[in-house]
């Protein structure tokens, strides 16, 4: 799947460089650097929040909460840098698309970071909740649910990681990879919901089910943010706004280098 032809410019050029004014290159690189830094931190936050939830590791949950403000501060830095580039350079064409896209990407990364906090909070709530009655399961989440949650987390984090890699060089192939993982993400999320929705089968109290559902939904949303980021990568590289487009047609079109 990954070795099919794609437009050459999408994988070979760094679209943000090559200005006569080299400082402009450095400004765009600096801006992208901030957002890549944010992205990597949120990937790590996702991993830690999922550990807290699945393994009941409260220390990981507190670490997520501690580290969250750093991501918020970075998003403020990104905003400031974006305003500065616009004011100083009045970007046009691909540069304008880069700046607009990075503005939107920074917002998606920051919101993905917020989801990790939500997951960590649910993990702490699960740990603090009163023990299940005797007839309930020995551990929360159960071994079966842990497998399902782990699958969901791997898809969500994988998509986020891939989308951030796509931003690093505005790489269309990696962005398409994110879209291709969407259905697996939705299926993994549906499996968790289905499991928790079984009538009495999991033997959990409603407040715990609610915590787990909230956390699972947050994981799915991290995957959605990754898709939004990938859409912006396509916007930069191809000059087309593909939000709300049919994914299957889009992937097919881009993979074969057709105009769309």
């Amino acid at each position: 799947m990954m070795d099919e032809p794609v437009p050459a410019k999408a994988v070979t050029e760094d679209l943000a460089s090559g200005h006569l004014v080299q400082r402009y290159d450095r400004e765009l690189a600096g801006l992208r650097g901030i957002i890549l830094d944010m992205g990597q931190r949120v990937v790590e936050q996702t991993r830690a929040a999922a550990l807290a939830l699945i393994e009941g590791d409260a220390a990981q949950a507190y670490r997520v909460l501690d580290r969250e403000p750093q991501i918020d501060y970075l998003s403020l830095d990104a905003d400031e840098e974006i305003f500065r580039v616009i004011a100083r350079r009045q970007p046009t064409a691909v540069d304008l698309r880069i700046v607009l896209a990075l503005f939107r990407i920074a917002s998606d990364v920051e919101r993905a970071g917020d989801k990790t906090v939500r997951i960590a909070n649910q993990a702490l709530a699960l740990g603090a909740a009163e023990p299940e009655p005797k007839e309930g399961p020995d551990e929360v989440p159960s071994a079966e649910l842990r497998v399902l949650l782990r699958g969901l987390e791997e898809h969500a984090r994988g998509m986020l990681e891939q989308s951030i890699e796509a931003v690093a060089r505005f790489n269309v192939v990696k962005a398409l990879g994110v879209f291709e993982n969407e259905s697996a993400l939705f299926e993994a999320s549906a499996r968790v919901r289905q499991h928790l929705g079984q009538d009495g089968a999991v033997g959990l109290r409603p407040d715990r089910i609610l915590c787990l559902l909230t956390a699972a939904h947050a994981l799915e949303r991290i995957g959605n943010h990754a898709s939004n980021i990938a859409e912006q990568v396509i916007y930069v590289a191809e000059g087309k706004d593909i939000r709300y487009r049919n994914r299957e047609i889009l992937i097919e079109t881009l993979r074969h280098g057709h105009a769309f």
Binding site: G18, H19, Y24, P91, A93
Partner: peptide, 8 residues
Amino acid sequence: TEDYITGR
């Protein structure tokens, strides 16, 4: 065109 208007 792109190279010219973006200063490349």
